[in-house]
Computed example of a mutant assay.
Amino acid sequence: MTEDLAARIDRLESIDAIRQLVAKYSLALDMRDSDAWVGLFPEDVKVGGGKQGRKALRDWFDETMGMQFDGTSHHIGGHIIEFDDPDHAQGILYSKNEHETGPEWVIMQMMYFDQYERIDGRWYFRRRLPLYWYATDLNKPPIGDRKMRWPGVQPYHGSFHDLFPSWKQFWARDGKPHDAPVAEPAPLEKFIETMRAGAPLPRPRVRS
Rank of each mutant, 00 (worst) to 15 (best):
I143Q: 09
Y112T: 01
R207A: 12
L201S: 00
Q115G: 02
K96N: 13
Y116S: 08
R11W: 00
F69T: 12
R149E: 04
D30M: 07
R11Y: 00
D10E: 15
G77A: 09
L57F: 15
A6M: 06
Y156P: 01
W60K: 11
F61T: 05
R207N: 08
H74M: 06
S14K: 02
P42D: 07
Q154L: 11
L138E: 13
Y116E: 05
H157F: 14
R196I: 10
T136D: 11
I119F: 03
Y156L: 03
M148T: 05
E184K: 15
L131C: 14
Q20V: 03
W150T: 03
K51A: 14
K46D: 07
P204A: 06
V106S: 05
P187L: 08
V206G: 01
W133K: 13
R54K: 15
G158V: 11
S26E: 11
A172L: 05
A186N: 08
G50C: 09
M110Q: 14
M31R: 15
L21Y: 07
R32P: 01
M108P: 00
I119S: 07
H178I: 09
E184N: 13
W171M: 07
L201K: 06
A183R: 13
V38F: 05
I119M: 06
R122Q: 14
I81T: 09
S34Y: 10
E82H: 02
L27S: 03
P187S: 08
H74F: 05
F191T: 14
G102M: 06
P177W: 11
R205N: 10
P187I: 08
R8A: 15
A56P: 04
D59G: 09
S159W: 02
A199K: 10
H74T: 06
G144I: 11
D145P: 07
P185E: 06
D62K: 11
